[in-house]
């Protein structure tokens, strides 16, 4: 049994300072996540999801409060937490394979295995310009998980993809997660996506954003596509949407 990872957010506040004025974006964010768990942050566009992920990743410093990963505080540019971004961040100057091995913790053999796993084994030695948007996302996914990190962050990872590709990659994400058993924390504005993937849904809303509610998702894994049409799923979807509309 591998060691459990614990992410703990303690009283996080984040304000942006624009021309001397403070604009609070996040307020009183308290959350604890233990591996293996997939947690999604759901909120409307511009509500502060990306800011929250950037604070957790250490790209931004919180105004107050702290982020702990396994009891250690996460600092700016901490190098423990890989992130999958909404935009394409596959390095175009490196081959698919080298995009994985650029991570100092990933060797050639591991890169090979991971690329097989995301069905890109044959594209190993080509440059990303020959890949579709969905394939590039798969590279990013493999790259994020390949170094066996304690946690993977994803900021609207499938936001730019078509519905079919999106569903395929959602399935792949849960597969990869089941293999790795890490913490996955991702943001989305797609309520269905959050329900089909996560164990808990954190609904963010208000201005500044606070946690409106945390909803546990009872469905067993693996979750079939048909789950989307179950009454219980639809009921939960409505519940989340109602909270989102309130604020």
């Amino acid at each position: 049994m591998p060691k459990r990872t614990i992410l703990h957010l303690e009283q996080l506040h984040k304000s942006y300072s624009v021309e001397g004025k403070d604009f609070p974006v996040l307020e009183n964010i308290d959350l604890t996540i233990k591996s293996p768990e997939i947690v999604s942050i759901v909120g409307r566009s511009g509500c502060g999801k990306t800011t929250l992920l950037n604070v957790i990743a250490g790209f931004l410093q919180p105004t107050h409060g702290k982020v702990y990963l396994d009891g250690k505080e996460v600092h700016a540019n901490d190098q423990r937490i890989p992130m999958i971004f909404q935009q394409d961040t596959v390095f175009p100057w490196l081959t698919v394979h080298k995009n994985l091995t650029i991570n100092p913790l990933v060797n050639a053999e591991e890169s090979h295995q991971w690329l097989e796993h995301v069905e890109l084994g044959e594209k190993k030695h080509i440059h990303p310009k020959f890949l579709s948007g969905g394939m590039r996302k798969r590279v990013e996914m493999a790259r994020a998980f390949a170094g066996k990190p304690p946690m993977v962050l994803a900021d609207e990872p499938f936001g730019f993809l078509d519905p079919v590709t999106k569903r395929r990659l959602q399935g792949l994400l849960s597969e990869v997660w089941a293999k790795q058993r890490t913490i996955v924390l991702f943001s989305t504005h797609d309520v269905e996506e959050s329900l089909i993937l996560s164990d808990r849904v954190v609904v963010l809303g208000g201005s500044p954003a606070r946690i409106q509610r945390i909803i546990s998702i009872p469905f067993l894994r693996p979750r079939p596509e048909s789950l989307r049409f179950e009454p219980e799923f639809q009921h939960l979807r409505k519940e989340v949407e109602e909270i989102l509309e309130m604020k």
């Binding site: 790209f59 890989p82 390095f91 490196l94 991570n103």
Partner: peptide, 19 residues
């Protein structure tokens, strides 16, 4: 976004510049 992605993968500053 490339710089952030590189940092999040654990590259040192020298390697971010080099790679």
């Amino acid at each position: 976004r490339y710089i952030r992605a590189a940092h999040s993968l654990g590259l040192s500053k020298v390697n971010v510049y080099r790679m």
